[in-house]
Nucleic acid binder design. Structure first.
Lengths: 197, 197
DNA sequence: CCTTTCGCTTGACACCGTGTCAATTGACAT
DNA sequence: ATGTCAATTGACACGGTGTCAAGCGAAAGG
């Protein structure tokens, strides 16, 4: 339907969106700003994307592709022990977070007023939960899940712990570096979920 | 400055705001909705509150007063051991969360576009951090802080763990009951912060 | 060389929610 | 009766999203 349009222009829009969101921390970016940055008219943006939510969602995929986001998960899948898998998964996610943060924040911000944006982000979070479950299940398979922890409970907790707003809070309000985030999330997860840690 | 206006009307506005936010989960409440519910004109709301952020902030105080929010903290302050204090603080906060949730969410949602809303909520979170620090410090005083934990690190983690979006996520997405939230947060905090737990 | 098509531009406009303003009403006091 | 005062009414500006119609320039095809 929109296949007749210039794919270069489309890419410039996506890049402009990603850039502006990064600069603005995921907020305060209007359609007109994006158009200006891409060097086209505001209306031309609507020739390529139905609306703002649509554009933001397309930008998440653009960023994923650009940064090879799922290549990042390979070490986690390759891990032998559950503990290794937990570590590797947190490492992958922690690396992904700063990349997806601006656009993720933008989606979260528009969530309350836009069902499309809300459900697109919710879908990503569901995917992320599967990673958490897989790590926890590997732990359980090894008999290394901490006592008093069901797989369900542990997955819920790990999932919640790793949510983007927590990363934002720890790095921006508490002043943690990315390395500290990674280190402390790994230590926290071990302590919470791994038997005798 | 606005003291000449009818205090009953002011109260009706605040109550209408609190009610509507509760019903709407903190989103989708417009000035006109509030006015209608309070039985006055939209403009009359502006006679009592300078703007939407102002009204929301006043509503937080109204709710605090209505629910005796700081009376809730007494058990925490009275706790003898650090572990007791940690438990009591989480209990107090967990009881507060469902009450403040709708209006807190509304403030969070408008944060990105309204500095007044943003900083009002940030202030509440700073106050909450002091409670976290006090509990952690009591633990440290008792020599019961888990090894590898500095007071700073533990306070950051506890603070983050208890943030409103996490409560929202656990109760609304993961389906935890309020009792489960309370129980698992206490268990998680003990496991993370208390020596040999 | 003329015409069509295509990707984009230009400018106007509707909609929504917030916030502002001026004129007015109706009740209650002095 | 006069004034004061809370609140009403209706109009309007603004900013951001989304829509529409007309036009323009370059490239392609006869």
């Amino acid at each position: 339907m929109m296949s007749s349009l210039n794919p270069d222009t489309r890419k410039r829009i996506l890049q402009a969106t990603a850039d502006l969101l990064s600069e603005g921390g995921g907020t305060g970016v209007r359609m007109s700003d994006i158009a200006k940055r891409a060097g086209i008219s505001r209306q031309a943006v609507y020739l390529h994307f139905a609306n703002r939510a649509d554009l933001l969602i397309a930008t998440t995929f653009y960023v994923d592709e650009l940064k090879d986001s799922d290549g990042r998960l390979a070490p986690s899948r390759a891990a032998k022990t559950g503990t290794e898998r937990l570590d590797a998964y947190i490492e992958a996610w922690a690396g992904y977070l700063p990349e997806i943060y601006p656009i993720g924040k933008a989606l979260i911000v528009m969530g309350p007023t836009d069902e499309e944006a809300r459900s697109a982000w919710a879908q990503r979070m569901q995917d992320m939960r599967e990673g958490c479950e897989a790590a926890i299940n590997a732990l359980k398979r090894d008999g290394d899940l901490a006592p008093g922890m069901t797989a369900q409970l542990a997955a819920d907790l790990l999932w919640t712990l790793l949510l983007l707003p927590n990363w934002e809070h720890l790095t921006q309000i508490c002043g943690w570096s990315q390395n500290q985030y990674l280190k402390h999330m790994k230590a926290t997860a071990r302590r919470l979920f791994v038997l005798g840690a």
